[in-house]
């Protein structure tokens, strides 16, 4: 078994709060170690420290790897590699957009200016003529916006 086989299996696991995107494309899998055919270790990093979905995802990842016939599966959750929206893959960004969630532009994690939230591209019409309504949305990782062009409220995946 290879690392790719494991990643392929984990790709079927999605974030229960945003089922449109896999945990791999979310960038929350930070390490996969195949020790041998019967022993695999996966490391995950939560999007937010208080993310309530992490235990469910941890369980699902473990089950997915067990599905390959691996007996010893260890899934560790730690902050060794801090999650940032810069870890979203291109495929992940496309999935968010399709789901009606504006994906965040890549940014410098050390110098995040929240003004970037003021002109997030609308996932429906693509206009940048949008307004941030609130930095807090239905889940910790989302923000609320309004598009002045197509007059539609939408949600963004906020840069962290």
């Amino acid at each position: 078994m290879t690392k790719e086989d494991v990643i392929h299996a984990i790709e079927r696991v999605t974030d229960p709060e945003i089922p449109a995107i896999s945990v791999v494309d979310m960038g929350i899998i930070t390490d996969v170690q195949v020790l041998n055919d019967n022993s695999v270790r996966v490391v995950m990093t939560p999007t937010f420290v208080g993310c309530p979905a992490i235990d469910v995802m941890k369980h699902d990842v473990e089950q997915a790897v067990r599905g390959l016939g691996v007996e010893h599966v260890v899934v560790d959750v730690n902050f060794d590699v801090p999650w940032s929206t810069n870890r979203l893959t291109e495929k992940g960004r496309a999935a968010l957009l399709k789901h009606g969630l504006a994906p965040p532009e890549p940014f410098d994690t050390l110098a995040l200016e929240l003004e970037v939230l003021n002109n997030v591209a609308c996932p429906y019409c693509g206009s940048h003529n949008t307004t941030l309504k609130s930095p807090f949305g239905p889940t910790l990782c989302r923000s609320l916006h309004y598009c002045n062009a197509c007059r539609q409220a939408f949600e963004g995946f906020k840069p962290v």
């Binding site: 937010f48 420290v49 208080g50 993310c51 309530p52 309504k133 609130s134 930095p135 807090f136 949305g137 239905p138 910790l140 609320l144």
Partner: peptide, 17 residues
């Protein structure tokens, strides 16, 4: 509503911390 959500979200973050 936005303020309700904001305080609830912040509470959830603090609890995580």
């Amino acid at each position: 509503l936005e303020e309700d959500i904001a305080f609830s979200s912040i509470a959830q973050d603090k609890l995580g911390h």
